[in-house]
């Protein structure tokens, strides 16, 4: 996983609440292998409407954006990691919102995407920020947990564990394998403690 320390890019304002994973990637696109790239399917059914908030994904004024600002409960719903694949393949490295679906946030971190929590008031301020809305650069510093747009500075929250993981680009599997002795001990003890726990047919 690529470490994430600083992100500096345009930011797309998406003034929508409850952007669920069905909207992030409609189910009909999920049969495709990841190698084909999921970016074009991000918010597909909203994005086709030129009046919609999501149409900015195709607006040249926001080309190269790696940051998305949205309202509460972003990524709620289904556990489909394809929602994060779509965001990541489009180019997003950071999503700013007042709250995230738990499974989505976890999936995001595992794909090197930062789910940064900011207050509802800060979201409204950013969504209305003229510099941000005109494609101005937004600077995000994960170590400091701040974002800057012009002279405006906003602090964000992130689970400390996820922060460390993103900063270092750590991989869970390697970490887990270093616990193989503890796992073996657990399994041996558990077989005595809960003999009924394994399926019997």
């Amino acid at each position: 996983m690529t470490p994430l320390t600083i992100v500096e890019s345009r930011a797309i304002p998406l003034a929508l609440a409850n952007v669920d994973t069905d909207q992030l990637i409609p189910a009909r696109f999920m049969k495709r292998p990841r190698t084909e790239g999921y970016g074009p399917f991000l918010l597909h059914d909203l994005r086709v409407d030129p009046q919609s908030e999501a149409s900015r994904l195709d607006d040249p004024a926001f080309a190269g954006a790696q940051i998305l600002v949205a309202r509460r409960n972003f990524g709620s719903g289904s556990s489909r990691e394809a929602a994060v694949y779509a965001l990541a393949d489009y180019g997003f490295r950071c999503i700013l919102a007042p709250s995230f679906g738990d499974i989505f946030a976890s999936n995001a971190v595992k794909n090197g995407v930062l789910p940064a929590i900011i207050s509802e008031a800060d979201v409204e301020t950013l969504l209305n920020d003229s510099m941000l809305r005109s494609g101005g650069l937004v600077h995000i510093d994960l170590a400091q947990q701040i974002l800057r747009v012009g002279n405006h500075v906003v602090e964000f929250e992130i689970e400390p564990v996820w922060k460390t993981q993103l900063l270092n680009g750590w991989d869970d599997i390697d970490m887990t394998r270093s616990y193989s002795t503890a796992v073996a001990d657990f399994v041996a003890h558990d077989a005595q403690a809960r003999p009924w726990a394994t399926p019997s047919l």
Partner: peptide
């Protein structure tokens, strides 16, 4: 509880998960 594909892969390979 529900998990994403990366966690599914982790469980496949280790039968464990890191959780808070």
């Amino acid at each position: 509880f529900g998990i994403g594909a990366s966690e599914v892969a982790h469980v496949m390979m280790t039968q464990t998960l890191w959780q808070k």
